[in-house]
Design a protein around this nucleic acid. Structure first.
Length: 434
RNA sequence: GUGGAUAUAGUUCAAUCGGUAGAGCACCAGAUUGUGGUUCUGGAUGUUGCGGGUUCAAGUCCCGUUAUCCACCCCA
């Protein structure tokens, strides 16, 4: 009786081609993060349920995988990397050098319904700065977001920024702060359900005057500064929150990337732990995919674990959603390169000698494999071609006797008959450098 | 979790009113035993997602189930 090789809803297998591309993007991101001085950490995938959910009751709780382990402990699989990081900070703050900048790229799990770019197991790439609450850190996260997307070759993007503090000041001013969560959720939907519907819901939540004012508040103006001027005035004038956003914008301008950032007062983020700046990232050619990188400032996140004040700001790239988008837009190169060279198994060749050649080539710093099956030469070339290998080495009895090899460029079909192995290595290396 | 659509060969898709399961690409073998991609010839594709039901007869109709996609919700 065979067992069907099925996998769970929202969970996926990755064939080499796709997994290699995923790893490539991760490598690029890691290089970008480390170039800013960020360091990687790791935390357990499984934690105590109470540690991950806190007091609980939120919308995310329903999506968390929880169960009892064999020791009857209530455990939960991490649904993001930020909450475990908060616990990590509370536990290790004395062992870390502040301000601490970390990145963390790993799988997280959410048991929600699946859709395109939306899975139950997916990779998040988090990067955060903790230990400081200033514009310098807020800015650096935004800059790193920009650098990351640039590094992986995604230029056509839009970052939407907002500030929760200014929004809260505004809500306090119009005496609606008790409904803050519902109001934020509602205005967040304006792109989908439209102004009229939002106004209707807001009127139900508050009253028609306040609803009109909220709608006015979230309407973006011509530019970042104009919008910021407006919401500053509407929130009761200059405040720490508005000053922060002016300062961050100044820094963006100095770097010359301010045009990619728009101030959109309707962006609020569903997660309720954000206290300051918040942001979302959209592919301009595929906005309906949703945000591919979001985050914000959370100054009280660790407060459920420690009395110490640990302010933080961070962002998270949804790697799998991003890849789903890039694939749809054809922005991921089709073919992944294979080994630099393959030693073919031809008539008169010696298996041991082929492996010997391969190990010499590997010692020279190139990647090399030996064709392992017993197939016709045509199949072997086909194999090499399909795997994206551009050079083949053939070494039959003639070559063995003369202590030479024959090299063939699989793409150009150029032949180098009976040359020294060292020459072959030079040719391959030269071609690889181009 | 709720509602809707979909599920056929490795893959992309056909199959009329319910009447023998089909094509392209890919794959395998040969023409080609030390040089492949073209071409030609031949071949296998399969429990029609899975499980029931109706019928003389089900890929097709009905019920259930699982997965995918879409919307809600939420989010990356």
């Amino acid at each position: 009786m065979l067992i069907e090789p099925k996998i769970l809803k929202g969970f996926r297998d990755f064939l080499p081609e796709k997994q290699i591309k995923r790893k490539n993007i991760i490598n690029i991101l890691e290089n970008t993060f480390t170039s800013f001085g960020f360091q990687t950490i790791d935390t357990p995938t499984l934690e105590y349920k109470e540690v991950l959910l806190g007091k609980g009751g939120g919308e995310t709780d329903k999506q968390v995988y929880t169960f009892k382990d064999n020791g009857k402990r209530e455990v939960a699989m991490r649904f993001d990397l930020t909450v475990p990081f908060a616990r990590f900070m509370a536990a290790h703050i004395n062992e870390l050098i502040l301000p601490f900048k970390r990145y963390h790229i790993d799988k997280v799990w959410r048991g929600e319904n699946t859709q395109r770019g939306r899975y139950r197991e997916f990779i998040q790439c988090d990067f955060d700065i903790v230990g400081v609450d200033n514009a310098s850190a807020d800015f650096e996260i935004l800059q790193l977001m920009h650098s990351s997307f640039k590094a992986i070759g995604v230029e056509n993007i839009k970052f939407k920024v907002n500030h929760r503090g200014i929004f809260n000041n505004f809500l306090t001013k119009i005496e609606a702060s008790d409904k803050a969560v519902e109001i934020m959720r509602t205005v967040d939907k304006i792109g989908k359900i439209g102004k009229d519907k939002v106004l209707e819901i807001l009127t139900d939540l508050t009253n028609s005057d306040s609803a009109g004012e909220i709608l006015d508040y979230i309407e973006p103006e011509a530019g970042f500064l104009q919008t910021l001027d407006k919401i500053t005035v509407m929130s009761g004038g200059k405040s720490e929150a508005s000053d922060r956003l002016y300062e961050v914008y100044e820094y963006l301008k100095v770097i010359g990337i301010e045009d990619l950032f728009t101030l959109d007062p309707s962006i609020t983020r569903g997660l309720d732990y954000y206290t300051g700046i918040v942001y979302e990232t959209f592919l301009k050619d595929l906005p309906e995919l949703g945000s591919v990188c979001s985050g914000g400032r959370y100054n009280n996140l660790a407060s459920i674990y420690t009395k110490k004040n640990i302010p933080g700001v961070g962002s998270s790239i949804g790697l799998d959603r991003l890849m789903a988008g890039l694939e749809e837009l054809g922005l991921i190169e089709k073919k992944v390169p294979g080994s630099d060279v393959i030693v073919l198994n031809i008539e008169g060749s010696s298996v041991s000698h082929n492996h010997f050649i391969a190990s010499v080539i590997r010692d020279s710093g190139l990647s090399c494999e030996v064709y392992l099956a017993d197939k016709k030469i045509g199949n072997q070339f086909g194999f090499a071609d399909k795997k994206g290998i551009s050079f083949a080495i053939l070494c039959g009895s003639d070559e063995i006797d003369a202590d030479k090899v024959t090299l063939k460029n699989i793409n150009t079909r150029e032949n180098f008959n009976k040359i020294n192995l060292g020459e072959a290595i030079d040719i391959i290396r030269k071609s690889r450098e181009q």
